[in-house]
């Protein structure tokens, strides 16, 4: 999106509604001066774009659009990705904070479904109880879906979480007020409140690696290639090939979050 015309337009709008609003206010103090006008104006803050780099030099976010492919049939549940993610991103070591985690599904002959993820999979998975009743069983890696229509960004009251031009959902740790609304709004359980920073934490697709041309840490260490990273649109990347030759699905598609974590060989019981 071109920055400057947008800004100019918004500036014009601002002075306009501003003066009208104040005049009305004084003239008709008791009257019902519209609540909507100041609200609409107030929301679109525009500070003239001066030094808006937004990323490292030489990296143009508008040229990219990232997503992740996950081949469920390749995941062996070793949880190297979970460990690597915690190491790379300073995710708290304790068991209940994960940017990514591995779930084990055990679907029984009577359609009962048992799911577990002990310590996100890091500690391994205990033997399956009553193995004789198992119909099928498999591992599913989970992470932030980096939705194109992210409910977490929608609900953030202050603009502390946002989607970048290259399609990654990030948290501004210096601005987050810790209201936890985004945690409630995420259908995937991908967010948590960092126990020391008291702000929302989540997967960043290792954004600090992307801008240097590296893949996310979880992708780097996946020994079976169950995680495939790359461009969602147009450009030829492993993800593009993955999406060409697999039937892909997204999680909770009915919520219209437009996720960019694409699953191949996904079982219908996974949610």
């Amino acid at each position: 999106m071109p920055e400057s015309p947008d800004t100019i337009e918004r500036d014009a709008e601002r002075t306009d509604s501003d003066s009208v609003d104040r005049r009305e206010f004084l003239r008709d103090l008791l009257g019902a001066c519209s609540a909507a006008a100041p609200v609409l104006w107030w929301g679109t803050v525009s500070v003239p774009a001066a030094a808006a780099q937004g990323a490292t030099a030489g990296y143009d976010p508008t040229e990219h659009r990232y997503g992740m492919g996950i081949d469920v049939r390749k995941c062996i549940g070793c949880a190297r990705c979970v460990v690597a993610c915690k190491t790379e991103n300073d995710v708290p070591e304790e068991p209940h904070f994960f940017n990514t985690w591995i779930e084990r599904y055990v679907i029984r002959r009577d359609h009962e479904v048992d799911v577990d993820s002990p310590n996100g999979g890091i500690d391994g998975f205990p033997p399956i109880a009553e193995p004789a009743t198992v119909r099928r069983t498999f591992f599913v890696p989970k992470l932030c879906n980096h939705c194109d229509n992210p409910p977490c960004v929608q609900v953030c009251p202050v603009g502390a979480t946002f989607i970048t031009k290259d399609g990654v959902v990030l948290v501004d740790e210096g601005y987050c007020i810790g209201c936890r609304y985004c945690v409630q709004a995420c259908p995937y359980g991908a967010r948590y409140i960092h126990p020391e920073k008291h702000v929302a934490g989540k997967c960043t697709f290792c954004y600090h690696r992307l801008v240097d041309g590296l893949v996310p840490a979880c992708v780097e260490v996946c020994p079976t290639g169950a995680r495939i990273f790359g461009e969602v649109e147009e450009r030829a990347t492993p993800l593009a090939r993955f999406m060409q030759f697999n039937d892909v699905q997204v999680l909770k598609g009915h919520l219209n979050t437009k996720p960019k974590a694409y699953y191949a060989n996904l079982d219908g019981e996974v949610r």
């Binding site: 987050c176 810790g178 609304y181």
Partner: peptide, 27 residues
């Protein structure tokens, strides 16, 4: 009292996200 950063609560008045139901709190 329940905010992780109560000292930043003023942001909800200064840069409210108009898409957020909670941001309308200020107004």
């Amino acid at each position: 009292a329940h905010l992780g950063h109560p000292e930043r609560s003023y942001e909800i008045f200064l840069t409210p996200n108009t898409n957020s139901a909670m941001a309308m709190f200020g107004f």
